[in-house]
Design a binder for these strands. Structure first.
Lengths: 164, 164
DNA sequence: TGGAACGATTATATTGCCATAACTAACTTT
DNA sequence: AAAGTTAGTTATGGCAATATAATCGTTCCA
């Protein structure tokens, strides 16, 4: 029952299968095509769905450097998807806000990314319930451990929606 | 019990969590750093683990165009990781074979990619067994359906190890 | 046997992603 | 108020990934 080799084999099997499922159909290309923009722009757009952010905040969330964020936001602003406004109370900061069109585009990206693959959708109710249960366990384990254990990773809330 | 909204919500939840788990820690960079080569080279190298391939076959597996494969294999050959030989019986074709060093590098990449994330490794035996069971169900569903249903995707054997 | 098809390569170009350096404007701290 | 810090931008550049076009030798087929 508690054979460590069997456990390790099961882990590898499961992990390989998960990776295959997620990586096999690359939604990124689909999102980029659907929105007519490169994926990094869509990623930024999606980050703004939960509310306006300053450039600095957006930079931190994207995990890149400030000048790159300027490039990305310039592009999005040019498309009419975001607006930059001055932060009241700190005129250095710019607040980036989605426009209506930007929100629509971000939601479109969301829908594409959220669409589960057929193999997942084909699961029996029982299997899905079991999977749901296990993934919840994984989430709580991850929230407690994973980020802290990665030295160079910026500490940030674990947000399943962040994966792109 | 069979509430379609609840099912759909569970599907989204599970899928988002899976994507987060797979995409959050990007092993690609780690592989690239460990092998001292760009990730696309490692990808090709890994493809050769299961045996020699012609340039055409490798091209199809990688899903890119022929000239790119030439570039990649040139690089790998320059590092002493692969050898090109002429196909006996068709002198147009080149057979690409891993060298010993190439195999070692590919296996190193494999080990990095196969290492399950902490949150997964922390699963209880019961949860892991349940997950293993469900992922097996997903694999059989995927093998029957998924590839055939994607129009522009080249038909190719589903290989969980292929995901990179 | 001559042309079509195929395998591979060379040459060239594009796009995406992202960094560093240097700068300006605004705020904070002493 | 001078010095330091922070937010953002401009300018520049690099590498990775990958495509297209043209070419060459080889093989297949009518």
């Amino acid at each position: 029952m508690s054979d460590p080799d069997a456990r390790s084999a099961a882990l590898s099997r499961v992990w390989a299968e998960m990776r295959a499922l997620v990586l096999e159909d690359d939604r990124r290309k689909e999102v980029a095509d659907a929105l007519g923009m490169s994926f990094s722009r869509a990623k930024a757009l999606r980050r703004l769905l939960s509310g306006p952010l300053t450039m600095r905040e957006l930079t931190d969330l994207l995990g890149t450097e400030k000048p790159y964020t300027t490039l990305v936001v310039d592009d999005l602003e040019g498309r009419g998807y975001v607006r930059r406004t001055v932060h009241p109370g700190d005129r250095r900061r710019r607040i980036v806000t989605l426009t209506e069109a930007g929100r629509a585009a971000a939601e479109r990206a969301d829908r594409i990314l959220a669409r589960p693959p057929r193999a997942l959708a084909a699961l029996s109710p029982d299997d899905l319930a079991a999977l749901d249960h296990v993934m919840a366990a994984i989430r709580s384990a991850g929230a407690g451990q994973d980020v802290m254990s990665l030295p160079e990773k910026r500490a940030q809330a674990i947000d399943p929606n962040s994966a792109m």
